[in-house]
Amino acid sequence: MHGRYTPFFFVGPGLLLLGIFFAYPLLDTLWLSLHRYNIFTAPVFIGFDNFRRAWGDELFWRVLANTLLYAAIVVPALVVLSFFMALLLDNSLRLIKIFRTLYYIPVVTSIVVAGIIWKWLYNSDGLINAVLKGYGIIGPSWLADARGVPEAFLGLFGIQTESVWFTEPAIALFSVAMVTIWKAAPYYMIIYLAGLQGIPIALKEAARIDGAGGWQVIRHVIIPTIKPYTLVVSIIATIAALRTFGEVYVMTGGGPFHRTNLLSYYIYTLGFKYLEVGYAAAVSVFLLAIILIFAIINFRLAGGDNTTGGA
């Protein structure tokens, strides 16, 4: 068939790059997580101390909870919204290309610019609150308010609550999540759009002839057919959500008091500000473990790995 060593010429370059820029840093992270290391002096082996420290680090748990909450808001919202946006754009209207491009703008907007605009909108006397004021609602300072969303919502109707169940997610975290959703939904929309365009028109027509209404076509024909795309979208969206950095860096710096601090931002602070590189590595290992767990759940929920690709 082919020479004995031929496959390795094919696999070699890719694996080499993965090895240098991926496997090695990953092993290095694992190694560093067992050391105390500050960049300026040689690493000192301390066993599992960093992990023990993370276990007892209140801030770590706070940040971890934030990150999971944030993913729990962002991922379902993205899966649903991007699907419906794609449905909307899946037609042959004359101006549809223009709309697709316009819808795509948030994706290619620099996070720095997006951060500036949204900070304006979110200010205590910004545009959003100006609109709310028209309805007699006094809005919060969206990126600085640490009250829980349910708590604040109940407060609108004059209901005061002390229960801890109403304190999450913080308004500020929710506001950050909205920016992510706004910026990423059109990205996943494109993936869905491709999926929708791959569905033969005959299939939709057939369902219609059978007397199915619009919603039934969506439910019984379209949603099952594009399930592989839903899997791809939810996996990419989950990983992206757990890795979110820019929104926090640009808009809140993790405040108010770490209610918008997410794991990747925390890792960045630990490594570059406190110079606690070993500890940062240990927290990274935690993040890695979480992502793996999520990915496995995702695969299971969506019906295994055979639907992801062509094989």
Binding site: K119, N123, S124, P140, S141, L143, A144, D145, A146, A172, V250, M251, T252, G253, G254, G255, P256, F257, T260
Partner: peptide, 11 residues
């Protein structure tokens, strides 16, 4: 301003 709690450089 309430944003004093979660602000970045030069705000």
């Amino acid at each position: 301003p309430p944003e004093a709690l979660a602000a970045s450089h030069r705000d």
